[in-house]
Every structure is written in structure tokens, then in C-alpha cells.
Nucleic acid binder design. Structure first.
Lengths: 199, 199
DNA sequence: GAGATTTTCGACTGATGGGTCTAATTCACA
DNA sequence: TGTGAATTAGACCCATCAGTCGAAAATCTC
């Protein structure tokens, strides 16, 4: 009973620490950020941080774990969607863009700090990324086989082009701009899939 | 006479240092790279490095300067091209992709170490980027005004989408793959401009 | 409100890294 | 082969930083 309460409070505080870490890592970079920087942002001393976290590296690994988890879920959702390959692609791209725009700071860290990960996590990262990409490739292959559309390039190149455009949004999306992440997502999907609609 | 020879030799050696720095920065990140790492890669002691370079920061600034210079040149070339807006766009994208693929390591540093730049360089970076983007936007506006094509989104969004796809190539292009940077460039241009060819 | 538990932190440690100093070594040229 | 400049580097300095320790506050429980 009591343990529960304490555990929950700690959990919540831990999340605050992670959020602060994301903010600072994103702004200065993982390596350039000291534990004191994170602590300062929370108005606490560096030593206190270690009550919620065991190491700086653990923070980074956990952040990656969070994004990776989301990736796995997204990949599953994609694979099980019952719709035209074209529709599925559109939904996927819009989703991906929206997610990226909603978590710009986290994804900046995710995309730019790969080299800081311990080897274990690095291979997990690669394998999840591969799985995600594979799902996408299969989707494209399905659409092509069904005669829904025709590519002018390798599926691989098409997929990389699309993902590049979508991922890059963490660098330029403005949350105070006129478009919501979802609106931007569907507009970008339209741009990126235009090549499929006419040969 | 003699000074010339010496100056040239030093210049050449300096370039080797910069190249080594790019390689290591790209692999481990700027902050995680020590001067000894760079020196080691060249088979020399850390102290020797300082004969060719005055500080670690200077190396980074110079690398940015190099890319920035290329950007300015590219922007000028774009602006002065006498051709259809559509053709110009295609050429530009292909160019951009090819350049990025040919200098993957340098561009990884360029895109991922912005936060490490001193304020002076950071504003220069922003202004050059802005200029480049502006040129692109004008090109799109010209094509639209001339009735060459019609956008389904803001020019800004279209441009960001295109640049995202092009820039992202530093993350996945494989120099040992079947496609040359130029071939990939023109294929990607086709994908990205398809949206302009039919409403 | 005593006693246990949780949370906080000041002070410390060991390691790393940017940059310097001084001196040895190599090189170009006469 | 001698001389002065160019090149190299070992040892050193100082700042920063991840992580620890012990103890003081703050909080909770009954």
C-alpha cells in the first residue's frame, strides 16, 4: 500500500528527470550536457538526481527504448492494417510525421546521438529500424504487385526518400505555426505519394 | 620561394588534419572526439596537431565554413539558371543529393553539430541557410506564377519536404551500392517533383 | 510527536581532455 | 657538412565532469 504510493511518486519524478534530460540533450547534445545541467533545470542538486537514475548512460538508453517501443508498435499497426497499400502508406506517412512533430526534442536526440549508445542498444536500434523498414518495403511491394501503382525507382530508394522527408520534420516543424502535426502529416503524404499516382 | 614551398606543404598537411577530423567527428561526434583521437589517426602526437590548427573549435568552424561556401555557390548557380522552374528544381535536387552523398561524413558533422558552433558562426549558418531556402522558394513561386505547375501545399512545406529527403541521404547512401550519387539524385528528383506534374 | 523512511545535497574522487611549454629531431639548402 | 627553420612530442597544467559518500532535512506512519 505505502510502497505503492512511494513507487508511484518516484516514478513520476523519474519522468520529470527524463523530460528535463530530453530538453537539455536536445539543446546542447548528450555529451555536452552535464548531470548538473539536468539537475539545475529541475532546481535540484546533481547528487539528488541519482536517486531516480543510476547513470547518465541509462537515461539515454531509456530514451531510445521509448522511441524504439513506439516504432515496434507502429510497425505492427502497419502490418495488420486492412486497406489498400496506397491508403496504408498515406496513413503511415501522416502518422510518422505527426509523431515526429509532436516529439521533436526526443527525436533530435534519437537521430543524432546514436553513436553514444552502448553496443547492445545499438544493435537493437538497428534491428528495430530494419524491421520497420521491412514492413514498409513489403507494403510497397504489395501495392506494386496488386497493380495499384508503379515505382520509377527501387522500393528501397522510395522508402528512404519518404522516411527522410518525414524524419527531417524534427528540424523545422513549428508547433506555433498554423498547421497541426496531423495536418502537416497528411499534406506531406500527398506530396510524397504523388509519384505513385501517375507514371 | 622557400616560404612558398613550406606554406604549400603546411597547407596540404592541414588538409590531412581536417580530413582526419571529419572522419572521427563523423564517427564518434565532435564532443566525444579528443584531439588525441585525431592525432592518433594521423600517427602523430596530440601536441604536433597544434602546428597546423589553433584549436579544436577552429577545426569545426572551418568545416562549417567549407560547407557554407558550397551552399552560397549553389544558391548563386540556382538563381542565375536560365531554364524552366521545373527543370531548375530537378537539377537542384539532383545536385544537392549528389553533393550530400559524396560528402556523407562532412554533412553528418554539418547537420548534427550545430549546437557546438560559437554564436558568431551559428548566425552565419542560419543566414546562409535562409538565403538558400529563399532562392528555392522563389524558384517555386516563379514556376507557380508561370503556370508551370500547382502546389497542393505552401511553398515552404514543399521546400522543406524536398530538402529533408535530399539531406537525409547522408544517413543511408551506400557508396559501394549500384547507384552513383548522380543517378540517385535524378531518381529522387523525379519522385519529389511528381506532385508538381499532376494536380 | 517519536522513529523510520525518503529525499536532498555539499564535499570529494578519479579520470579525461584541451591546450601549453620546452626541448629534441628532422629537413632544406648552401 | 653546418645552420637555421620546420616539425615533432613528452610532460605538464588546469578545468570539467560522472559518480560516490555521509549526513542533514523533509516527509510519512502510527
Amino acid at each position: 500500500m505505502v510502497d505503492q504510493r512511494v513507487a508511484l511518486r518516484q516514478e513520476a519524478r523519474r519522468r520529470e528527470v527524463m523530460a528535463a534530460a530530453v530538453a537539455v540533450f536536445s539543446e546542447r547534445g548528450y555529451r555536452a550536457t552535464s548531470m548538473s545541467d539536468i539537475a539545475e533545470r529541475l532546481g535540484m542538486g546533481k547528487a539528488s538526481l541519482y536517486h531516480y537514475v543510476t547513470s547518465k548512460e541509462e537515461i539515454l538508453v531509456d530514451l531510445y527504448e521509448e522511441v524504439l517501443r513506439e516504432n515496434v508498435i507502429a510497425a505492427r499497426r502497419i502490418a495488420s492494417a486492412e486497406q489498400t497499400a496506397l491508403d496504408a502508406l498515406a496513413e503511415l506517412i501522416a502518422d510518422r510525421v505527426a509523431y515526429t512533430c509532436r516529439n521533436r526534442e526526443l527525436l533530435r536526440v534519437f537521430f543524432e546521438e546514436e553513436a553514444e549508445l552502448p553496443a547492445r542498444q545499438q544493435s537493437r536500434l538497428i534491428s528495430v529500424r530494419h524491421e520497420y523498414e521491412q514492413t514498409l518495403l513489403e507494403m510497397v511491394a504489395r501495392g506494386e504487385a496488386a497493380g495499384e501503382f508503379q515505382l520509377t525507382t527501387t522500393p528501397q530508394i522510395f522508402v528512404n526518400t519518404v522516411l527522410g522527408a518525414a524524419n527531417w520534420t524534427y528540424k523545422w516543424f513549428q508547433p506555433r505555426g498554423p498547421l497541426s502535426p496531423e495536418e502537416l502529416g497528411s499534406q506531406m503524404a500527398a506530396i510524397l505519394l504523388a509519384t505513385l499516382r501517375n507514371p
